[in-house]
Computed example of a mutant assay.
Amino acid sequence: MDTISALLIALICFIIMKSILEFITGGKVRFSMEMKESRFSIEIFYTLLVIYSIVIIGFGLIYFILSFHQVVLIEYEEYRDVSVLGTFIHSFYFSGVTLLTIGYGDITPVGIGRLVVLIQALIGYILPTAFVLRIVQTSNEGS
């Protein structure tokens, strides 16, 4: 893998981890809307949507960058030669399906892609828990 790809992947990982850590630790968020007299916070909900979007886009870009250096994703258990646009679409589709724990099975990771998928799936399991904990923490601070 060349230096530019490695730096891009490192930058994407940094942005993903920074976003998740700020969400979990309660970093300042720019949204100011909040429902009164409720345990549901629109601010936290919007933040969660932004975090999910960042993670899906970030991992989609990682799969896309890795696809230029090696085969990372195969479709229906066989390698298919697709265009750059097709690889781009597959990368983001697979990222979303993996993060949201749907896992249709139509696209399968191989090689280093398996390790990347494990990390993304772990994040997909942790984010809802962090969301609930954030709501509980926010409601306890308001009491």
Rank of each mutant, 00 (worst) to 15 (best):
V132L: 14
R114E: 10
H90R: 15
Y93F: 15
I44S: 03
I102W: 04
V84G: 03
Y63M: 03
I102E: 10
G60I: 00
L118T: 13
L100H: 10
Y76W: 08
L118N: 15
S38R: 10
R80H: 09
Y52K: 01
R39I: 14
I62E: 04
G111N: 09
Y79R: 07
Y79N: 04
I89H: 02
E22G: 11
I15F: 13
E37F: 12
I9M: 07
V71D: 08
I123A: 14
T129R: 13
L118I: 12
R80N: 08
V71R: 07
S67L: 04
T108I: 15
V29S: 13
F23M: 07
L7F: 11
G111R: 04
A10P: 00
T138Y: 12
I112E: 12
C13H: 06
I107W: 03
S32I: 08
T87L: 11
K28P: 01
I44V: 10
F68P: 03
I16M: 08
I24T: 07
P128N: 09
L11Q: 08
G86M: 02
G105R: 04
I20H: 01
F14V: 07
L7T: 06
A10V: 01
E77R: 10
G113P: 05
S91C: 04
I119T: 15
T47P: 05
I135T: 06
Y46G: 11
Y63S: 02
I24N: 05
V110T: 06
I126F: 13
